[in-house]
Amino acid sequence: MNRIISPKMAQTIMKGVLWASGIITVLILIVIIGYILIKGLPVVSLNFLFSDPIDSGRAGGIFPMIISSLYVTLIAIVVATPLGVGAAVYLSEYAGENTIVKLIRFGAETLASIPSIVFGLFGLAFFVIYLGFGWSVLSGGLILALMVLPTILQVSEVSLEAVPKSYREGSLAIGATKWQTIYRVVLPAGIPGITTGVILGLARAISEAAAILFAVGASLSIPISIFDPARPLSLHLYILATEGISLDNAYGTAAVLVILVLIITVVTNTLVERYSRKMMGR
C-alpha cells in the first residue's frame, strides 16, 4: 500500500492534464485563425474581392481566383455527386455482403487516403496529357471530383443506411418497384445526410491545391470555357507566399479561405444538428 501518489491524487492531476489538453487544442485554433484574420481582414475589401490582380498579384484583387475556385469546385461536385450517391445507393440498397462490396469499400477507403500530390501526378498524366484536356478548369475539376468522391460516397451510404427499414417496407408493400421505392422514399429521407456529404466534399475541393498544381495552370485571368486555365484561391495563396510576391495579398487570400472554412463548418453543423433532431423524432 505504499504509493507515492494516491489514486485520488492521480485522479486530480490527470483531470487537470486532460483539461489542459482540451484547452491547448482550442488555443491552437484561436492562435492560427486569429492571426490570419487579424492580418488578413484589413486587406479584404469589396474592391479586393471583386477586382483583378495587378502585377501578378503584387497589388489588386483576387476576383479571377474566386471564380476559378468556384468553377473547379462546381465541376468537381457536379461530377462526383451523382457518382458518389449512385455508389452509395448500390452499396446500401442492392449489394449484400460479398467480396465485390468489400473490394468497393476498400477502394473508397484507399481513394480517400491517396496523397493529393499522387492525384496531381495522375491528373497530369491522364487528364492533361493522355485525354488532352491541357491545363484547364476541366482537368482540375475532374481531379477534385475523384478526390471528393469517397467523401460523398461514405457519408451518403451512412445516411441511407440510417433510413428506417419500415419506410422501404411501406413502399414495397403498396406495390412500388425497388427503384421507385429508392427514388421516392429512401433518397428523399437521406437528403440531409447526402447534403452534408456534398458540403464536406465542397470543403475539400476548395482547400485543395497540391492535386491541381500541374492541372489548372496559373492563369491570372478569369476562366470562361472549361478548357481555360485558371488559378484557384488556395493555389494563388501558395504562389504568393512561396514566391514572395505580396505578403498583404497572401494574408487577404488566406483570410478569405479561412472564412470559407468557418462558414462551411457552421453550415454542416447546423444541418447535422437539425437532421439528427429530426431523426430523433422531436
Binding site: I28, I32, S207, E208, S234, L257
Partner: peptide, 13 residues
C-alpha cells in the same frame, strides 16, 4: 475547423 483549414493556410502560417 482544424480539420477543414486548407493545408496551404497551415503552410503559410
Amino acid at each position: 475547423t482544424l480539420a477543414g483549414i486548407p493545408s496551404v493556410v497551415y503552410g503559410f502560417f
